[in-house]
């Protein structure tokens, strides 16, 4: 029997932020990340019949998203490849060899290891946020990630500022404990 059930009605509330964060750390563009998340959900709808329930819905959606990200890079790389053929780099013989210096990596730039570690840290934070009650996760995201001010959140969710701080306190305590167990 299938261990996991599929329910697309909850996809946006439950998984959109996780998928969005996963994508943006890999494509580095908000609009493209939104498009890829949307395409993932639509592809998920189309292939719902193939969901066997052996993995969680989120794992299944991430698998679809990974393919979408690969397709995206394939597409832009093929375009880039064509463009590079037309570049006539330093045809002037006096400047020959300048490109070598220009191609040297910037030592102050982030290393690939840093980027990978930070994206894994982001995934770990999201895994911990997923364990929070829905309201706590929502308030925490609005306050901490989206940097909405207290008044906006209170108006949007119809809560008082003291309620907000109680929710934030509970969320931060739970998250710190979860991160302590899984990351630090």
């Amino acid at each position: 029997m299938a261990q996991h059930q599929i329910d697309p009605n909850k996809w946006i509330t439950q998984y959109s932020d996780y998928l969005f964060n996963y994508t943006i750390t890999r494509v580095n563009d908000r609009v493209i990340a939104q498009d890829l998340v949307q395409e993932t959900f639509l592809a998920g709808l189309k292939s719902m019949a193939n969901f066997k329930g052996e993995s969680s819905e989120r794992t299944w959606l991430i698998a679809i998203l990974k393919r979408k990200i690969i397709d995206y890079y394939r597409k832009i790389n093929s375009k880039k490849g064509k463009a590079e053929v037309r570049v006539n780099y330093n045809s002037d013989s006096e400047n020959e060899g300048d490109w070598l210096e220009e191609q040297v990596a910037d030592p102050f730039d982030k290393t690939a290891e840093d980027t990978i570690e930070n994206s894994e840290l982001g995934d770990a934070i999201y895994n911990c946020m997923d364990k929070l009650p829905e309201k706590q996760a929502q308030v925490f995201k609005m306050k901490t990630i989206l940097n909405y001010d207290t008044e906006t959140i209170c108006n949007e969710l119809n809560i008082t500022p003291s309620n907000l701080w109680v929710i934030i306190h509970r969320a931060r305590t739970a998250l710190a404990e979860c991160m302590e167990d899984n990351w630090f």
Binding site: T25, R30, V37, I125, L146
Partner: peptide, 10 residues
């Protein structure tokens, strides 16, 4: 950690 990871949400 939140700052380092630059976590994003919609």
């Amino acid at each position: 950690s939140m700052d380092k990871a630059s976590v994003e949400a919609m």
